[in-house]
Amino acid sequence: MNTNQGNLQQALMRADPRLSRFNPLERILHFDDFDTGQHGWQGYFPDYDGWSDYPERYQPVDAVDQAIEKARRDPRMRIDRKLPFGPRAVPMLSSLTSWDVGTAGSLSGTYALKIPTLPQAGSKVFAQKRLGSPWRGKFRVETWFCFKGEPADFRLGETDIRALYLTFDVMDLHHIREQGQEPSRWWPALRYHNAEDGKLVRRWQANVGSEGVKDGAWEYLEDGGQDLGFNRAATKYQWNYLRFTFDLARHEYVDFHCHGKEFNVHGRQHDPHPPLEGWRASTDKCPGLIGTGFGIETATDKRCFLYLDAVVVSATES
């Protein structure tokens, strides 16, 4: 894109009240305004099988009948590892309505996407969308968000929220083999560690592990400390802006901005330790995947909620 085109595009976006609060890259892949629908942000359901005929299947992925049996009968299973059988907390369109003020509405309308946890310590719930960028340039996600504990007990609930998540499962396009490169998989992923054991932590982390896209292990960013806007009552919603960019060809973080602070992540890579192996390292069946997940985890037996006002996903061609 030449400079004139860039300036014109920027001027047009700044004049559009819907887009003026975002900074998308040159191509907008999707603009999800939750006043017009849920835009395909769905709950996360882990891989399950039924592929007994699939010779290379990753063994820890159970056949669905095994998974049902385990989820029902194995009390030692980590709650966030169980296939979510039983009661489910799923993303929904919320009007942010409570006993005291009634409907607060979203930042720019009536509805936001709400991601709720179950009322069970450790419950971690995601809203997911999977796309493939047709280009191998930069990829950017932006949103305005707020987070709250359930206000039914009239308590502030700030320390009930263990963490917020923005995770990506990224796999290369397969035609790079024709250029002599081997496709690989990596997980640019950020976690806002909000609280632990009843105390505020409030530091951003990045995924450095191979436990899972959403499971770390996590490393604190050196400059990761940040007091996000939470506000002083359980039903006062304060919105925060977030922008995260990574490079699909270089497998590197480009930038991360949240709530007025630019974090030093440029050039960061996800080099999973221990390395991903076998099926988990493979890009088979998912070439070009960019699986985005927004999530929240509760630290106590109380529902917690992550609200997104809108999501803009954009990319560059190179």
Binding site: I68, R72, P87, V90, S95
Partner: peptide, 29 residues
């Protein structure tokens, strides 16, 4: 129109007693 299907109980084993599904907001519908 918008349409949305929300799975609130999947393969849920329920024994004798009371239960409640998770709250769902549906004001748009």
């Amino acid at each position: 129109k918008n349409v949305h299907t929300a799975p609130v109980e999947v393969l849920s084993a329920r024994s004798d007693g009371a239960f409640f599904t998770e709250p769902h907001e549906a004001g748009w519908a």
